[in-house]
Nucleic acid binder design. Structure first.
Length: 565
RNA sequence: GCGCCCGUAGCUCAGUUGGAUAGAGCAACGGACUUCUAAUCCGUAGGUCGCAGGUUCGAAUCCUGCCGGGCGCGCCA
């Protein structure tokens, strides 16, 4: 509202200068010395007005009415920027919105309640979840959180590739280990699964069924291997995800698309588009007609479909369920699939660009600058379970979220294990807990801290202004992060804000500067600072909530956890 | 060879879609701290934004071409 006043005042000034249609854009300067709000109109108008930018800026400044608009000063700076400084009362009054909105501060209704589905993790049930799934889980869940906060009706979905060649290989792998268990000579096939968990599944089958499948390689035997393995691994994955605090609304089974004939009907529908052709005994879709680099095989020469066909069927199903906005989070090693799935959907009449993809790159865990691979169980990379057991769920989630999806992620185990302020996740949680401890010290329930009847204009120190300015940026930041599908912007913001908050908090250390402490004797000043602390607590809490990370009221030192095997 | 992504401080990374002196966090260096609102605080230093052109008042950001790295490239998923 105070900003509105400035914008209006500038508009009026420009009107008087005969350039009412100018595109005036404001921004919050990074440098506090540049005031609270700045605009570069004078620079953009220089050409059309044929006057020097500074000259134009001076005229605007002189025409802006500062009376009663809450503007403390207007300055012309640099090549012709106009910098506005608001009165401290105007700045502090923004706290009223924050305290008023409380747990909803930062929400908006940009999505208008429309449905959107975020599909992520979608691991094949062929082994334990590893690091990449962890990153994808944390990322997808945070994107879903952002969409929820910006007014979308979000559902989280998991697509189980429980059909097809990789599951057959799993069954063969279990079968081989089962034979080995009974002393038979059998080897896990080429491209099979080697991890210890395969042997464990085989032993489970041996316990339940005895030796009745020894030397027996018929369909029924393999079916037992297959269903048992899928069942066991799905349960394990579900447990891992649940402990990682990720919950899905819909689990979609690829096998269901075969069972109800939709893979075939999708193939039929694609044929009818005339974009299908036969070559070398296989059936192809002319995906190049929709911007793909190459045409793709949809039915192999042996008559079985490639994964691509059920994938298209699956997205037709999504659309049919009324989910006209869909985001798929995937590893960037799958980026080749993007164009072809979109092409298939488009061929069947869906809009170009459906579904939307967020691709993320791989994760590398390092300790002291060296790569760590500590999983025996999975046979190769570290599992999600191992990582979250070692450093905790909150840290794991945060570290996966704090980098933009593109580009590799280096997970620094040393930093993750550090429970001091150096660890960015703890830094944010500490700042939150410190605010809560002030409330406790003051003997105040959170809800009793209000802005009504408090003169907030007493919040005049530079640090206080900085903190307030950081806080009021939160809603716009959330909107932006949601649009860009970029949770890391939230992390970045929380760290910056926590930094400002910690400075404020430490500056008011009673042993050093008792007059800067929150709990001063002056009642109004104390209430104003409590309102600020409360606002900080709300923003940090809400930011962490979007990311699916806890906002503790009190920090506890966790006991040393035994490292995972 | 073609396509997508990445290249910013010693390390890990931001940079709000073209703005002012390019920012954080680790690490480094220098101080403060018998103490509580504390599993510290304040400060310093550190940069040809991969390279070269171009666009314009203005480029880390947009365009073109190179260099380097990751991933993917007709019947694996």
């Amino acid at each position: 509202m105070s900003e509105e006043a400035i914008k209006q005042a500038v508009a009026l000034a420009l009107d008087a200068m005969g350039v009412a249609d100018a595109d005036v854009r404001f921004e919050q300067p990074k440098d506090p010395g540049h005031g609270d709000l700045a605009t570069n109109v004078a620079l953009t108008l220089a050409k059309t007005l044929r006057r020097s930018p500074r000259d134009i800026a001076e005229e605007i400044a002189s025409r802006v009415d500062t009376e009663g608009s809450g503007i403390e000063s207007v300055d012309v700076a640099g090549p012709g920027f106009l910098n506005f400084k608001l009165s401290s009362g105007q700045v502090a009054s923004r706290l009223e919105e924050i305290v008023g909105a409380d747990a909803d501060y930062g929400r908006c209704d940009e999505g208008g309640g429309e449905s959107i589905v975020v599909e992520f993790v979608s691991a094949n049930p062929t082994g334990p979840l590893h690091l990449g799934h962890g990153r994808q889980g944390a990322l997808g869940d945070a994107i879903a959180g952002l969409l929820d906060w910006t007014g979308w009706s979000v559902s989280r979905e998991y697509y189980y590739n429980d059909a097809g060649a990789q599951i057959d290989r799993l069954a063969e792998s279990v079968w081989a280990r089962y034979q080995q268990h009974f002393g038979q000579d059998a080897a896990v096939p080429e491209g099979g699964y080697q991890g210890d968990y395969v042997g464990a599944i085989a032993e489970g089958i041996a316990e339940e069924h005895g030796d009745r499948f020894v030397g027996n390689h018929d369909a029924a035997a393999l079916e037992v291997m297959r269903t048992t393995a899928v069942h066991v691994l799905r349960e394990e994955q579900d447990r891992d995800l649940s402990d990682f605090r990720i919950h899905f609304d819909v689990y979609f089974l690829e096998s269901s698309l075969y069972e109800d004939g939709r893979v075939e009907s999708t193939a039929e529908a694609l044929r009818e588009t005339g974009k299908v052709f036969d070559l070398d005994g296989a059936v192809w879709l002319r995906t190049t007609a929709y911007g793909d680099q190459k045409d793709r095989v949809m039915i192999k020469s042996d008559g079985s479909p490639t994964y691509f066909l059920p994938d298209v069927a699956y997205h037709m199903d999504k659309w049919g369920r009324g989910l006209h906005h869909a985001i798929n989070v995937q590893g960037s090693d799958h980026h080749g699939t993007v164009a072809r799935v979109q092409a298939g959907a488009q061929a069947l009449g869906l809009p170009a660009g459906y579904p939307e993809y967020v691709l993320h790159q791989m994760v590398r865990v390092e300790r002291d600058g060296k790569e760590v691979k500590l999983s025996k169980r999975a046979g190769s990379t570290i599992t999600l379970r191992e990582l979250m057991t070692e450093v905790g769920v909150d840290v794991t989630r945060y570290f996966f979220q704090m980098r933009k999806p593109d580009g590799h992620l280096v997970f620094d185990l040393g930093l993750a294990l550090d429970q001091s302020d150096k660890n960015p996740m703890y830094k944010v949680q500490y700042a939150h807990a410190r605010m809560c401890s002030i409330f406790k010290k003051a003997g105040r329930e959170r809800a009793s801290i209000v802005t009504e009847g408090v003169d907030l204009s007493v919040l005049t120190t530079e640090v206080e202004r900085e903190v307030i300015k950081a806080l009021v940026q939160f809603p716009e930041l959330v909107r932006n992060a949601a649009r860009l599908r970029a949770p890391h912007l939230i992390c970045d913001y929380l760290e910056q804000t926590a930094g400002a908050v910690n400075s404020w908090y430490h500056a008011g250390n009673p042993s050093r500067n008792p007059e800067l402490a929150v709990l001063v004797d002056d009642e109004n000043l104390r209430n104003a600072r409590l309102a600020l602390a409360r606002s900080v607590q709300i923003v940090l809490h809400n930011g962490l909530t979007i990311l699916g990370i806890e906002a503790p009221e009190q920090m506890m030192r966790e006991a040393e956890l035994a490292p995972a095997d």
